[in-house]
C-alpha cells in the first residue's frame, strides 16, 4: 500500500478521530498527538488494513482505548493539576472557533459528563453515526447507548435551562 492509498482511506475519518480524542483529552495538543499516534499505528499495520471489516470503526475504537490509557496514566501519576492547565490553554483556542459564549458553555458542560456519555454524544450528535456503528466502536449494546445518550442529553438540557433561567454564565 502506498502513502497515497493510505491517505485516501484515512482522510475521510481522521478529523473524527481527532474530535473524539479531543472530547476525551480536552487539550488540543494532546488530541493531536493521540490522533497522530493512532494513525501511525494504522500505517504500521497497513498490510492488515484490508482484513478489517470497517477501518473507520476500528480506528475509533483504537482512539477510545488510546485516550483511556492516556487518562488512566494521568490519573495514576496524579497529574490532574497539569490537566487543568491544559484546559485553560485549550479554552482560549476553542474560543477562536466558538464565538458564542453560550456555545462555549455547552462545551464545558460536556466536559463534566462521564467519559462514556461524552463519547456517545460525540459519536451520535456530532459525528452522526448510527447506533449500530457506535455499538461496534464502543463495544456496547444499543440499549446501553440509548440510555447513556438520553442521560447525557437531559443533563446538558438541565444545566442549560438553569443557566438560562438564572442568567448565570
Amino acid at each position: 500500500m502506498t502513502q497515497l492509498e493510505f491517505l485516501n482511506i484515512v482522510t475521510p475519518f481522521k478529523d473524527k478521530v481527532f474530535r473524539l480524542a479531543k472530547r476525551l483529552l480536552v487539550s488540543r495538543e494532546e488530541a493531536e498527538d493521540a490522533t497522530q499516534e493512532v494513525l501511525i499505528k494504522l500505517w504500521k499495520n497497513k498490510t492488515k488494513i484490508k482484513d478489517y471489516k470497517n477501518v473507520e470503526a476500528f480506528s475509533m475504537t483504537m482512539t477510545k482505548n488510546f485516550c483511556y490509557d492516556k487518562l488512566k496514566s494521568k490519573q495514576a501519576q496524579n497529574l490532574k493539576i497539569v490537566h487543568s492547565n491544559y484546559q485553560d490553554h485549550s479554552v482560549s483556542l476553542q474560543k477562536e472557533i466558538e464565538l458564542n459564549d453560550s456555545i462555549d458553555w455547552v462545551g464545558k458542560i460536556m466536559e463534566s459528563l462521564p467519559e462514556q456519555q461524552k463519547m456517545v454524544v460525540q459519536l451520535r450528535d456530532i459525528e452522526q453515526y448510527d447506533f449500530k456503528e457506535i455499538a461496534i466502536m464502543l463495544d456496547m449494546n444499543e440499549t446501553a447507548i440509548r440510555v447513556a445518550l438520553s442521560r447525557a442529553r437531559k443533563t446538558i438540557r438541565e444545566k442549560l435551562t438553569n443557566t438560562h433561567n438564572y442568567g448565570v454564565k
Binding site: L7, K14, D15, V17, F18, R19, K22, E32, T35, Q36, L39, I40, W43, I97, E98, N100, S102, I103, W105, V106, G107, M110, Q122, D125, I126, E127, I156, R157, L160, T161, T163, H164
Partner: peptide, 22 residues
C-alpha cells in the same frame, strides 16, 4: 435553551485535524 446545544454540535463538527502526519 436548546439552541446553544445544537449549534455547539454543528460547530464541533467543523473542527479539523491540522497536524502533519509523519
Amino acid at each position: 435553551m436548546y439552541k446553544p446545544m445544537f449549534s455547539y454540535f454543528l460547530v464541533s463538527q467543523k473542527e479539523q485535524f491540522t497536524k502533519q502526519l509523519p
